[in-house]
Design a protein around this nucleic acid. Structure first.
Lengths: 130, 130
DNA sequence: ATAGGTGCAAAGTCTTTGCGCTTAA
DNA sequence: TTAAGCGCAAAGACTTTGCACCTAT
């Protein structure tokens, strides 16, 4: 993988922010200081970094994919008000996969859990813009 | 909700098939016998039926929404080969929500678990078209 | 030199929506 | 008759891709 300034910036943006940004969020954060940057480049690099295992790509039903610098498998929560994604303090349970595989004859490779609700700040101030 | 022939057909299609069809699948199943049917009508009715609680809408990361005639909360598995969705024999665990809510100060309303792997038939015959 | 990366704009997938016509109640 | 529903085509959100140019190695 040949070095590129853009990829470095994109990776840094995901790692240095505890938010789980979408491609568009990364783009918006970088665009002001890097006006030549293209959204396509952001998508390409986020996908590539995820493929290399440097980031986690978290696809979200009915919404843009989020990217996460935390590499260990874990679960997420999406705020129904501000669409922000946060990590959930629940230990990952790899045994779920084998339990299902055993019962069904399917080959289970992984699973995701997504919680829906209001994030801490939206829960406190329901009408804030977050 | 005023009766319509189209809605009846769409609902029947979801209920009578144990597959969890997408809007497009429903459309394809009905189109041959109902050439005038519009995909927009299928989307509108599936969403409406889900809102009325007659169906479950199952949004899927990076894929089309599936619709399910089984109303009790339950979990799903998506086949990575044929994209078919199947129910998973794992009891729904509503306590997950309150556990997370308690630990975080978020208001958790619901959660979904999606398993990824190969469905039974794809697992047996890896190269079949399903 | 050349494989890989970039920006741009076009295309692709899934879904919703505006509008004029039709139909159930 | 009138609110609800339909078909069609356009638009919207998110993402990928083709292409000509640029850059790290």
């Amino acid at each position: 993988m040949a070095y590129s300034k853009q990829r470095e910036l994109i990776l840094k943006t995901v790692l240095n922010n505890r938010i789980h940004p979408t491609a568009d969020t990364v783009f918006s954060l970088l665009k002001p200081d890097h006006p030549e940057l293209s959204l396509a480049t952001v998508y390409r690099n986020l996908n590539q970094l995820a493929k290399q295992g440097l980031l986690l790509k978290i696809p979200v039903p009915n919404g843009a994919d989020h990217f996460d610098g935390t590499l260990e498998a874990h679960y997420h929560m999406i705020c129904e008000q501000c669409s922000q994604m946060v990590d959930v303090p629940k230990e990952y349970v790899p045994e779920f996969d084998s339990q299902i595989a055993e019962k069904t004859g399917c080959a289970i490779h992984s699973h995701t859990i997504v919680f829906y609700g209001l994030c801490e700040s939206c829960n406190r101030t329901p009408h804030a813009s977050c």
